[in-house]
């Protein structure tokens, strides 16, 4: 997991609107950033006091700019601290680790027309998708809803990309996207993409389904499930080791760090090689693998340490 991480410096912080900040990042080793596709996100590892916090943010800049990556963050008062740290503690010149880009919100390249919808800070992946569609010369339109005129961040960038194809909906002016009319009567081969608050996404999906849209043509932003989790204790019966799995390591990585030889192949929960026998678990087994059957999971006797962990308590393994 850490092999693909990049160390970056926060080069510039811009306040775009109340509670919305943009961060420009550049690599500390001076190399070029990798290329990414529209809709990609990265995971920032933020050095909060108790433990590193991993937050995903969409890349919003120009993928051909290999020196600078940009993300925009809205301060979430009720968050566990990641966005608050970025708003209150982050300073230009600080260094953090980020992951390689991942895209779970990619464009369908066979789409004949693309309708992009952003609500508030949801504009970030939509912006990179619009940029890609503009580059490809594809047929698209953007519908952008925000609270009040000053919250329409990136409108200039968007307008420059697709003049005349950006539709604004300003809540303070009582403007709202009507999904049932937006999605009605669209020709076959149209794809719909949305990133915004949960209620808005759900309303659009319901409207699309009610109008008979195939689910494969309705896309909403997805982030990679976090790899880490809460720390937990482990005891190995055969080697006699006892240790704690920290939040940012997998169980398999933690076992390897103890110098214990554990089998593995794919390191992604698919091959079955790493299966270990659970002797005892004083906590809930959190299975993330693709390998164990429902019965095997229910038995509580097996775990795939490359991706799965324990929630609270101590895990005793026959290893």
């Amino acid at each position: 997991m850490s092999s693909a991480s990049l160390n970056v410096e926060i080069r510039r912080i811009r306040d775009l609107a109340p509670g919305i900040r943009e961060f420009s990042l550049s690599r500390t080793d001076g190399d070029d950033f990798p290329i990414y596709s529209g809709g990609s996100h990265i995971v920032l590892s933020l050095p909060l006091s108790d433990r590193p916090h991993r937050n995903p943010y969409s890349l919003l800049g120009d993928p051909t700019d290999r020196k600078t990556w940009r993300v925009a963050v809205r301060k979430q008062e009720d968050s566990r601290g990641g966005s608050r740290w970025l708003h209150e503690q982050a300073r230009e010149g600080m260094r953090i680790d980020i992951s390689a880009p991942v895209n779970l919100f990619s464009l369908n390249r066979l789409g004949r027309r693309h309708i992009l919808v952003a609500g508030g800070i949801g504009i970030t992946p939509i912006l990179s998708q619009a940029r890609e569609l503009a580059r490809l010369g594809a047929d698209f339109e953007v519908h952008y809803a925000y609270r009040a005129p000053e919250y329409g961040v990136f409108v200039d960038e968007l307008e420059a990309l697709a003049p005349g194809r950006i539709h604004h909906y300003v809540q303070s002016r009582r403007e709202q996207i009507e999904f049932s009319s937006l999605l009605a009567g669209r020709p076959l081969g149209t794809h719909f993409y949305i990133c915004g608050p949960g209620g808005m996404v759900a309303a659009s999906m319901n409207a699309g389904k009610a109008l008979g849209w195939p689910e494969s043509h309705l896309h909403s932003e997805q982030f990679l499930a976090p790899t880490g989790g809460e720390p937990f204790d482990v005891q190995l019966t055969l080697s006699g080791k006892a240790f704690t799995v920290p939040s940012d390591l997998s169980l398999l990585e933690a076992i390897e760090q103890q110098g214990v030889d554990a089998p593995y192949l794919c390191r992604g929960g698919a091959c079955g090689q790493c299966e270990l026998e659970v002797v005892d678990a004083s906590g809930e087994l959190i299975h993330h693998d693709l390998y164990l059957s429902a019965e095997e999971r229910a038995s509580g006797k097996k775990i795939m340490p490359c991706v799965s962990r324990l929630k609270g308590g101590c895990l005793t393994l026959n290893l």
Binding site: S3, A4, P34, Y36, A100, P101, V102, L224, C266, G268, G269, A270, C271, L290, Y291
Partner: peptide, 17 residues
């Protein structure tokens, strides 16, 4: 093939298999 496909769909940049 079920497991292989799910695994591949999550394949990440700079981490070939």
């Amino acid at each position: 093939f079920d497991r292989a496909l799910k695994y591949l769909l999550m394949l990440q940049q700079s981490r070939p298999v």
